[in-house]
């Protein structure tokens, strides 16, 4: 069995009196994982700890088999990890070609290889002739693609992507998500994607980790989380709500949300016969006008999680 991609045990990090990470425990296998959490949950702190930019106060982390606390390991792991920061961070006065090839060389590629790789990854992210222009003249979308290119130049097996679609227009966002999806699902890269845009995580990742107050509150495969406890269906009805409630109670169905005459129900996996629902409703004088499966979004699940 291969070693986990990421292993964190009891990680604690304080900034003065503020505890950013509070005994964080996490194990991640290879694949694409989304990192969710409200502002101040400790996402950026965790990334910095993983890259060895910060020293933990307690606990340890192991990433792609390396311990970021040890100097030699720290350098080795940085050559195996690609990091796309959230904020705009480009070297002034350099074109995309100069910047990416420099970062390729700093990552340990020979000079010629770094230049070849630079053009390959710039092709991949779709930066055409503009790659020769100074990067400060780039649009937000081009800057995001350039940041992804520099994270890929040394072909790392593990990518840390911090808000990859930040500030992008819908077209740019779709393109970036396509690239991230391709890297995770087709190219077999392991990804850790931090994003506040939950549909982005849903689109690109297989599993999700929720951080709150410096701790992991949930770690699930996205599909498992969304289908927790059964299937969601939405119904629209005509009649007395109390009567429908009685009918649903008889069948053992739970009402999760009520919006006038339109409700969301949680149907247990054991219940597969929807005809019984129509029959029970009719028996109580209620007419069902619509029944359709409800696809719960990650956003709803995340909000429920935070609420809990």
């Amino acid at each position: 069995m291969s070693a986990p991609l990421l292993e964190i045990q009891g990680l604690v990090k304080n900034f003065g009196s503020t505890r950013a990470l509070d005994g964080l425990n996490l194990t991640l296998e290879r694949g694409a994982c989304g990192l969710l959490g409200p502002n101040g949950a400790g996402k950026t702190t965790r990334i910095k700890l993983l890259l060895g930019l910060l020293e933990p106060d307690a606990g340890f982390a192991r990433i792609v088999g390396h311990d970021p606390r040890r100097a030699q390991d720290r350098l080795a792991l940085r050559s195996r990890v690609g990091y796309m920061p959230e904020s705009d961070c480009l070297a002034p006065g350099m074109s995309a070609v100069q910047l990416v090839s420099l970062l390729g060389e700093l990552s340990g590629l020979p000079r010629d290889d770094a230049m070849t790789r630079t053009h390959e990854v710039l092709d991949y992210v779709g930066l055409d002739e503009s790659r020769y222009r100074p990067s400060e003249e780039y649009s937000t979308g081009m800057k995001q693609r350039l940041k992804l290119a520099q994270a890929l130049v040394h072909d790392p097996p593990f990518l840390l992507l911090d808000e990859p679609t930040n500030g992008l227009d819908p077209k740019g966002r779709r393109h970036m998500l396509d690239l991230v999806h391709d890297l995770g699902r087709v190219q077999g890269k392991s990804l850790l994607v931090c994003s506040h845009l939950l549909p982005d995580i849903e689109r690109t990742c297989e599993q999700v980790v929720v951080l709150a107050k410096g701790r992991v509150t949930r770690q699930n495969r996205i599909d498992d989380w969304l289908h927790k406890g059964g299937t969601r269906v939405r119904i629209r009805f005509q009649g007395e709500p109390e009567a429908l409630s009685c009918a649903l109670e008889e069948l053992g169905l739970t009402v999760e949300a009520r919006d006038g005459q339109e409700w969301q129900l949680l149907v247990p996996e054991s219940c597969t016969d929807y005809d019984a629902l129509f029959v029970a409703a009719a028996r109580h004088g209620v007419c069902l006008r619509m029944l359709k499966p409800s696809k719960e979004s990650l956003e709803q699940a995340f909000l429920q999680e935070l609420g809990a």
């Binding site: 940085r78 700093l106 990552s107």
Partner: peptide, 8 residues
């Protein structure tokens, strides 16, 4: 941020 994410 880019430089220190490299092995330097």
């Amino acid at each position: 941020l880019l430089y220190f994410a490299r092995p330097i």
